[in-house]
Design a protein around this nucleic acid. Structure first.
Lengths: 157, 157
DNA sequence: AATGAAATCGCCTGAGT
DNA sequence: ACTCAGGCGATTTCATT
């Protein structure tokens, strides 16, 4: 699906997504136009989903992060619980998870007061949500979106 | 700390971090050199921490995501538990959290077999870890790093 | 699917306001 | 702190292989 040259390009972009095309070409040892072509195709095929800037959340006034575990009973019709949570801008991630709690949401807000408001006003108004349990993040030691190269080959189909 | 023009620039970069400088200048209504200067300063001040490419994890061979809750007893000396977890490439995030479990780690691996190996070999060899509890992600409904503009003003100091 | 030439466009410095 | 001008380099298209 993606070959070795694609991986090289992706790895360079993972380090710095604003790396100029010509610089990537130098590192990979190909012509810039060939690199452009490959990046285009990676975008078309949905391998590259976009380019994000990493902003210090504190500087942005979003000093508090929390994980919210959501228990819900799904009903047919209308939007699903997860889709409604996904519409909330303070919610960065929504995952459907195995286990007793059905969903896990990652949220960023200014402070504890705003977290309370979020849970009461936004989560609280989603009909299917039975209960929530929040885990406050005190300190973030690592936070990256970089993907580790998995060992290829191996005994997996 | 960051003014309205900075916010405009950051918002454009949040949409697409590879947006050319000149394009940002057009949208903001300023000269490209002024935009460049502002971006430089945002980088210097650590507001902008970097630029990331968003890669489809499945295409990269990392189809399984899990959250690992880690209970540990901290000991003085050597690296802390969190720092040791942060060294593992499959670990994308490590948070120190409030509550019974001390840490929360987000991990991406190829499949369940690799998750097992990761927990046994890598987490298992960190001396201070008492126990782990993993929550498998079945489906990701939303996953963004975009920061929502918090309401400014308000009754907070 | 990659190259290389050529045109377009953006980057970035320096001077000036 | 921003604008403007200009040289340099990058991006991108296209013909070719």
């Amino acid at each position: 699906m993606i070959d070795d040259i694609d991986r090289q390009i992706l790895d360079i972009l993972q380090e710095n997504a604003r790396t100029p095309n010509a610089e990537i070409a130098r590192q990979v040892g190909m012509a810039p136009s060939a690199i452009l072509e490959r990046i285009r195709k990676l975008e078309e095929r949905g391998v590259i989903q976009g380019y994000a800037v990493r902003i210090n959340p504190d500087a942005y006034g979003l000093g508090l992060m929390a994980y919210v575990f959501v228990r819900a009973d799904e009903r047919a019709g209308a939007l699903t619980t997860a889709e409604q949570m996904a519409l909330i801008p303070e919610v960065q991630e929504v995952h459907h998870v195995a286990g007793e709690d059905c969903f896990l949401a990652k949220v960023r807000v200014r402070g504890t007061r705003e977290l309370g408001e979020l849970l009461r006003d936004r989560f609280g108004s989603i009909e299917t949500i039975r209960s929530t349990r929040s885990t406050i993040v005190l300190d973030t030691v690592k936070e990256t979106t970089m993907l580790y190269e998995p060992e290829t080959g191996g005994s997996r189909g």
